[in-house]
Computed example of a mutant assay.
Amino acid sequence: MARSSYTPPEDAAKLFSRQKQLVDAQAEIKDPLRDMAVREMRSNGASVGDLARLTGLSTEFFRRIARAEGVERRREPTVGPIKSDD
């Protein structure tokens, strides 16, 4: 398959370069961020909402980490199937 000969204009190249730097920086802190989130949830009582507000990431991102690491829930889930007493 032939390689593209696309060369972006200067303004596009600057924006694309900036995005690439942000993606690289985010990849660099991914593991330390995960470790710190687990520590804060376990030791200091941080909630997934607290961490989401502080980082700009979603609460679901931190919920997944908490579930994977076995962090004790602060409350029961409020969504999901309704359980009957049958």
Rank of each mutant, 00 (worst) to 15 (best):
residue 8 P to I: 07
residue 85 D to S: 13
residue 44 N to E: 14
residue 20 K to Q: 15
residue 67 R to D: 11
residue 41 M to I: 03
residue 32 P to A: 05
residue 83 K to G: 10
residue 73 R to E: 09
residue 56 G to F: 04
residue 74 R to N: 10
residue 38 V to A: 02
residue 62 F to M: 05
residue 49 G to T: 11
residue 50 D to I: 03
residue 17 S to Y: 06
residue 18 R to E: 14
residue 79 V to A: 10
residue 38 V to G: 01
residue 86 D to E: 13
residue 32 P to F: 02
residue 36 M to T: 12
residue 21 Q to F: 03
residue 30 K to S: 03
residue 83 K to I: 12
residue 80 G to Y: 02
residue 78 T to G: 07
residue 27 A to G: 06
residue 70 G to F: 04
residue 19 Q to S: 07
residue 79 V to T: 15
residue 3 R to A: 14
residue 22 L to M: 11
residue 57 L to Q: 10
residue 19 Q to A: 13
residue 56 G to E: 07
residue 32 P to M: 03
residue 82 I to P: 01
residue 68 A to I: 02
residue 32 P to Q: 05
residue 8 P to G: 08
residue 10 E to M: 05
residue 83 K to S: 14
residue 75 R to D: 11
residue 41 M to Y: 04
residue 57 L to P: 00
residue 61 F to Q: 01
residue 62 F to Y: 09
residue 72 E to V: 13
residue 54 L to R: 15
residue 36 M to I: 08
residue 2 A to R: 12
residue 24 D to R: 11
residue 55 T to P: 03
residue 36 M to V: 07
residue 6 Y to Q: 04
residue 33 L to K: 03
residue 5 S to H: 09
residue 78 T to Y: 01
residue 34 R to F: 04
residue 12 A to Y: 11
residue 79 V to R: 09
residue 34 R to G: 00
residue 42 R to Q: 13
residue 74 R to P: 00
residue 55 T to F: 09
residue 4 S to R: 08
residue 73 R to M: 09
residue 14 K to M: 13
residue 85 D to I: 12
residue 19 Q to M: 10
residue 47 S to R: 02
residue 30 K to C: 00
residue 46 A to I: 01
residue 63 R to L: 04
residue 73 R to K: 12
residue 43 S to H: 08
residue 22 L to K: 11
residue 32 P to N: 07
residue 40 E to N: 09
residue 7 T to Q: 14
residue 29 I to D: 01
residue 52 A to E: 06
residue 75 R to M: 10
residue 22 L to Y: 13
residue 4 S to K: 06
residue 22 L to W: 11
residue 35 D to A: 12
residue 51 L to N: 02
residue 17 S to C: 05
residue 41 M to D: 03
residue 16 F to I: 14
residue 10 E to N: 09
residue 4 S to A: 12
residue 7 T to M: 10
residue 22 L to H: 11
residue 72 E to Q: 12
residue 46 A to C: 06
residue 3 R to S: 14
residue 81 P to T: 10
residue 82 I to Q: 14
residue 2 A to S: 13
residue 54 L to E: 15
residue 81 P to Y: 04
residue 74 R to K: 15
residue 30 K to L: 03
residue 53 R to I: 02
residue 71 V to K: 06
residue 2 A to I: 08
residue 86 D to T: 13
residue 80 G to R: 05
residue 43 S to D: 15
residue 15 L to H: 09
residue 66 A to N: 05
residue 59 T to M: 10
residue 62 F to V: 02
residue 63 R to G: 07
residue 77 P to Q: 06
residue 63 R to W: 01
residue 31 D to S: 03
residue 77 P to L: 01
residue 7 T to L: 13
residue 26 Q to H: 05
residue 48 V to H: 02
residue 75 R to C: 09
residue 69 E to V: 01
residue 86 D to G: 15
residue 73 R to T: 12
residue 27 A to T: 08
residue 61 F to P: 00
residue 42 R to P: 01
residue 77 P to S: 08
residue 66 A to M: 05
residue 62 F to G: 00
residue 53 R to M: 09
residue 69 E to G: 00
residue 37 A to R: 00
residue 77 P to E: 06
residue 69 E to Q: 11
residue 83 K to M: 12
residue 12 A to D: 14
residue 20 K to L: 12
residue 74 R to A: 14
residue 8 P to S: 08
residue 18 R to C: 05
residue 28 E to L: 07
residue 42 R to Y: 03
residue 66 A to L: 03
residue 31 D to C: 00
residue 59 T to H: 05
residue 1 M to E: 11
residue 53 R to E: 14
